[in-house]
Design a protein around this nucleic acid. Structure first.
Lengths: 148, 148
DNA sequence: TTGACTTAGTTTCAAATGAAATCAAATGTA
DNA sequence: TACATTTGATTTCATTTGAAACTAAGTCAA
């Protein structure tokens, strides 16, 4: 007789763990600049001097293309990103942070690294390495493998 | 000069990892019974013979009380849960799975444990124990600790 | 070329979400 | 007892989300 107990169920703990991490991270850019997760991640992908198309941002961030499209619209409205024509492909445009956008990025980036440091400070260095390795191991599997 | 690179950023990997786990799990009850995450989790909390108030379900599952309320409404509409007056407190009602609900639970529970088994099969037994320990270690911290 | 197909990005629409307001019962206190 | 406060649960409302449809540009094969 198989027994399903939420407190023992691995996916349950994954969710709790994920929330602890993401809420700590989100709080920073949300309270400081009213940025949404998709917007912040888009800024991180672009970085201080990156230049990418919307599609490249989607690929690098593994976010939804609709969300990225909306994040770009919002960041353009705030004048935090600039776009120019993409000679290689007229359907897309090349995006980069404006100097205002870069200022926000420069303010936030060290804070985000500080949250990461605080989160990981509960572990030893070896534990961090091991946790990263274990998470990657499952994340890198083909999801088709887990269909029942 | 601190450098923020998404591919090295711990919260980024946490999100990818979480999605791998939750999408595998959700697929099962979603495709089989059209259940939503909140509904399924409510059923798990109740289990074959549990009897709880909405509030107890909220506490045990760490879900939002609005979502639990809606899950209960949906499950009642499907006649998968029954409720009766709570003598101890007239504001709440005691909930449990109906026999139809139990049948769904009995069908799904082994499948959910099977997904869990498949997910964890990429690890050795020691790795599973270590991963659970590491996730719990961070999850159990007071979130106030991570405010920057 | 030209017509079929693919790809980049946006818009639409319906569903999911949660904070805040609300309702109703319980409890505490004067 | 009455009145204020707290608590369990639901409803409202505004926001977030993503699948599917759509638009526009690019590619390819005949």
């Amino acid at each position: 007789m198989s027994l399903l107990v939420l407190e023992d169920f691995f996916p349950f703990h994954t969710r709790i763990f994920y929330r602890q991490v993401s809420s700590a991270v989100t709080r920073v850019y949300e309270t400081r600049y009213g940025l949404k997760p998709y917007e912040w991640r888009t800024m991180v992908i672009l970085g201080p001097d990156g230049e990418f198309t919307a599609n490249e941002i989607v690929t690098k961030s593994s976010m939804d293309k609709v969300s990225v499209s909306r994040a770009i619209t919002a960041l353009k409205a705030r004048k935090w990103i600039l776009s120019k024509a993409n000679k290689a492909d007229g359907r897309s445009r090349l995006l980069r942070l404006s100097s205002a956008g870069k200022a926000v990025y420069d303010d936030l980036a060290p804070l985000m690294l500080e949250v990461e440091r605080k989160l990981l400070s509960v572990y030893s260095e070896e534990e961090v390495a091991e946790l990263r390795r274990l998470m990657a191991k499952l994340a890198n599997q083909d999801s088709a493998k887990f269909i029942v």
